[in-house]
């Protein structure tokens, strides 16, 4: 393990609230250990700001294990920063060098308005799920869990899609601010399982309608979403969604 420390320059987006005008503010941080996580580096900066009597930078974070999906920083033009398959909270300062300048912005998308500094409002994702991202089964109605065997390949593919953490990096990376990767992961997860079959058609139609209503853009298959996804959700889910949508659109019974 190396024990050198780094001095860095940060350019961070500061915005008092949703209605205020934002701007970049430059900060210097010293004695940053390569073993720190990116957010711990922000903790150091915030502690310094508090001690100086100024307001710390607001950012979303919670589990710091890469699973809750809260953290959402656009670092040097890339959602979640330079490491592949990694959330900001799992990004470590080993990824940077002494003297680096790092630019940190919030997610940029009309459907994710800025709340304060680096915090954005992602409630549009919850509303997309409300539109149909579930299986309608009340508690207590279930049959034995092994009553329906599920082919392992399907179960594994459903799991891979269900690994989505709802962070919104896919939207932030997309030039159209499309939510297709997020939504397709849910559609694929549920349509790959026999339990999800009865609602396949209404689910995909309703979720797509909600996505449009929230102001997300359309998909032009640039695949930037997959490149930045911390959980490596595949764009093949988008193909699956398109197939589901086409079939549903052509055959829906109403």
């Amino acid at each position: 393990m190396d024990h050198h420390t780094m001095s860095l320059t940060l350019q961070v987006w500061r915005q008092q609230n949703a209605n205020a005008r934002g701007k970049f503010v430059t900060y210097k941080v010293d004695d940053i250990s390569p073993e720190m996580s990116f957010l711990e580096m922000f903790d150091v900066l915030n502690e310094k700001l508090v001690n100086e009597g100024s307001e710390p930078i607001a950012f979303d974070h919670d589990c710091r294990e890469g699973i809750c999906g809260s953290c959402s920083m656009h670092i040097n033009g890339r959602p979640h920063g330079p490491w592949a398959a990694t959330t900001v909270c799992q990004l470590h300062m080993r990824a940077f060098h002494d003297g680096d300048t790092i630019v940190v912005e919030p997610w940029r998308a009309n459907a994710f308005p800025v709340v304060k500094d680096l915090v954005v409002d992602r409630s549009a994702f919850d509303r997309i799920i409300q539109a149909g991202g579930y299986i309608s089964v009340n508690t207590g109605n279930a049959v034995d869990a092994n009553a329906t065997p599920i082919e392992k390949t399907h179960a594994d593919a459903a799991f891979a899609a269900a690994a989505c953490i709802g962070c919104g990096a896919c939207v932030a990376a997309c030039k159209n601010s499309s939510a297709m990767l997020f939504m397709s992961a849910k559609v694929a997860h549920l349509s790959l399982l026999p339990q999800g079959a009865p609602e396949r058609k209404s689910r995909v139609l309703d979720m797509v309608a909600q996505m449009d209503k929230e102001g997300f853009g359309s998909c032009t298959f640039t695949e930037a979403c997959e490149a930045v996804c911390p959980k490596e959700i595949s764009v093949t889910n988008i193909s699956r969604l398109n197939a589901e949508y086409l079939v549903a659109g052509l055959t829906v019974d109403k």
């Binding site: 207590g140 092994n146 459903a158």
Partner: peptide, 22 residues
């Protein structure tokens, strides 16, 4: 035991064996 049944009905993708069982 009911919990596992309920979760599978909701579409929770638990790990499975090649035979398709949990």
């Amino acid at each position: 035991a009911n919990i596992i049944d309920q979760c599978v009905a909701q579409g929770v993708p638990f790990a499975r064996e090649y035979g398709g069982l949990l």
